[in-house]
Design a protein around this nucleic acid. Sequence first.
DNA 1: TAATATTTGTACGTATGTATG
DNA 2: TCATACATACGTACAAATATT
Lengths: 243, 243
Amino acid sequence: MRTEIKPARPSRALLRQAVTEQIKAYIIDNRLKPGDPLPTEAELCEALNASRSSLREAIKTLAALDIVEVRHGSGTFVGRLSLSALVESLTFRGLLSPGDDFRILLDLIEVRQLFEQGMATRIIERLDDAQLSKLEDLVGELEQRSATGESFVETDHAFHHLLMQPLGNQLICQLTGAFWDVYAIVAPHLGMANREEEAETVAAHRAMVEAARSRDVEAFAAAVAAHYAPVRRRIAAATRAEE
Amino acid sequence: MRTEIKPARPSRALLRQAVTEQIKAYIIDNRLKPGDPLPTEAELCEALNASRSSLREAIKTLAALDIVEVRHGSGTFVGRLSLSALVESLTFRGLLSPGDDFRILLDLIEVRQLFEQGMATRIIERLDDAQLSKLEDLVGELEQRSATGESFVETDHAFHHLLMQPLGNQLICQLTGAFWDVYAIVAPHLGMANREEEAETVAAHRAMVEAARSRDVEAFAAAVAAHYAPVRRRIAAATRAEE
DNA sequence: TAATATTTGTACGTATGTATG
DNA sequence: TCATACATACGTACAAATATT
């Protein structure tokens, strides 16, 4: 075997970093879409002139950003490009600083409320009858689940997602979804909502739909504020309880 | 001392996944803060009963989320918990779909405008004299740089950051910063702004500060709208030019 | 300033688990 | 059931960056 000296590699910039960029470039240059397969590890090692270790570490970095998705025994594929990384970051921050976690939760709620109130006009003018009906169905489901004591987390999520959908702003939709996920993970620290607050929240959902159907921006904004009022109270109470 | 746990190896569930969770738990349990050192790779391997490869892949995942930061030859530390992962995700999406990149840029601008307009009341009532003066200084710098043809990207960034600062909502501040970074990376595809648009933008900055000083919410909101108008026009033009 | 130890980065070989046909 | 392709995991060795003496 030849003892060829490997060409002085750009040790300047870390190899792993370079490999990461090259994989991203590969995806972009080949116009790949989420779900499309990438070359196998062996092939990528060969193509990028890197060892398995370096390549795999690069891939793990990209996987954390949901730029690629690795399926054991199957292969590596282009990821969904979701905001899962944002969820990870924010939840970790929430869990890290016990005391700031409520602060983070409040920040989150404020942004969600800002989205829904700031976009009130556009939401109302863009919701069509089919979407309004679907929203009403979801409110009905909320009421039923609330009555039977079932968890209505999923339904609540679906409601707000459908609300933002017609905006045509994918970033807002995905941020809303991400914030929701973070909230669902961090919120248990708040303690459960009582029946009264739950009823208040559900009623606010119905008020939002009714306001939307009658194209009443003022009423809609008021309903949104009422919707977030119980959560804000709980956060405030939890913050006080801590001090 | 350390409070790590030595679980029986979950060899059937992904080891790397378990290791990442354990490292996160280590940081949380020990109340570590950004910049604090973590045990060396060797020590972590020992403590978590994992090979160095697996451990490193786990660390790379956490590094991508800015939960840890690795310094060659020095050690591993708790990361800054920034939203750098969000920036990575969004910029990649922008670069991936040439055609949707303008759409993403527009989404971004909409959210930024939504933040500044939706928070107008709070921004205005919370800005104190010192901050207003600093904002005026920044506007002056913008005007000067615009006149001499220098890049005022940094100054622009500083202006908007200072504007959102007094809100007390860290999430909004960091999202604003992240969006700004994404914009700076993707925007070059739009082509440079001409002198006229630049002047328009700078003038809008001054109008924002003046409105804030006279506590005029309506005028402030109008100035914000005027501020984003040139960018919106450029995005619209670029979108049309593509079709 | 220089030598040395510590720590992370890269490479490679081997064995094993997992999905697919 | 079997075979193949692929990712996962481990261990060792050495290179490169940094810290320490």
